[in-house]
Computed example of a mutant assay.
Amino acid sequence: MNNQAQKSREALGARLRGYRKDAGFSSGRAFAAAMNWQESKVSRIENGKQNASEDDIRVWCEKTGREASAGDLVATLRHIDELWSEWRRQLQAGIDQPQKKLVPLYQKTKVFRIWEPNVVWGTLQTGEYAKAIFEAVVRVHGDTGGEDSAVAKRLQRQRYLYEGDRIFNVVLGEQALYSNHGGAEVMRGQLDRLMVVMALPRLSLGIVPRSAPLAVWFGHGFSMFDDKVVRVETESAEMQVTQPGEIEIYMKTFELHRQSAVYGKAARDLIVGAIDHFDRMERENRD
């Protein structure tokens, strides 16, 4: 569990502990007996070591005379679950489901800040490149269906590049131009796509050269939606950051990556160099 989610769970546990004590249960043992629970369950919930269920919250509030607070605490619990959602659980309903969930977030966002060190950002991907990415997800998590739908939903989000007054600030590591997803032909098509979208008036595309002096380590990729939500994807889970202090860290990190990036002609030259690389690769494969 990420740091923010764990802190939130511990804060929820502390609040429940306060309710227990205010209700006259001086010990977890006494409260567990009244709830017909194991004593260890009370201790683990109060110390943030175990997730409480929504039913646990409601019964806890009823037993301590805090029924009016149950709705608020259940909302807090759901927020904690949203902070750290296991990919396997999300993908059980199909690989396209996480793509569908992003639509409301895109609709209400005015300023996007995207950092991707090793892969082209999803909203700038071609269909063939996106297909290769989802095939990689299937190799790790298994085939849950919906691959074609996932590609389609990802491509549909590209309309936001043209609609409204949204601003897209995208920074890629140069490695993203060379990480080979789908083979030379797919990569050439993807790189050509980057050359086209660079002309969009509301898109700022920067690339951090491999030899650029770095103000901060590359770390993992992330997507920032205004200054309210940051999404981070790992191999096993998806995290949503909403705590202002942590969002500030991501904002500062993004700005430091921007300092190392090049734009305009210098960025186009890097993309052309990558296109030449895949042209040579395809010629060598034919020979």
Rank of each mutant, 00 (worst) to 15 (best):
V197P: 04
L191F: 07
V208R: 02
L205Q: 05
R202D: 09
L172E: 09
L177T: 10
S204C: 02
E163V: 11
L203I: 02
F218C: 10
S204E: 07
A215P: 14
E185S: 13
M195P: 05
S204K: 01
D192F: 05
V216E: 13
V171C: 08
Q175A: 14
L191Y: 07
F218D: 11
P213R: 13
P213V: 02
L200R: 02
V197W: 01
P209A: 15
Y178Q: 09
A212S: 15
P209G: 14
M195G: 12
L172D: 07
D192C: 05
V197I: 00
G182S: 07
Q175W: 15
A199H: 08
A176W: 12
L172A: 03
Q175L: 15
A176S: 09
L214P: 13
R193Q: 13
V171P: 03
L194A: 03
L203Y: 03
P209I: 15
I167T: 10
L194R: 01
G206I: 01
L203P: 03
R210T: 15
R188Y: 05
L200Y: 15
R210L: 15
Y178E: 13
R210W: 15
V197G: 01
I207C: 01
N180W: 09
L194T: 00
G173P: 11
W217S: 14
A184S: 00
A215F: 10
L191A: 05
M198K: 03
W217Q: 14
A212C: 13
G183Y: 02
N169L: 12
L200Q: 04
V208L: 05
L200N: 06
G183R: 01
R188W: 06
P213L: 09
R188F: 02
L172N: 06
E163Q: 07
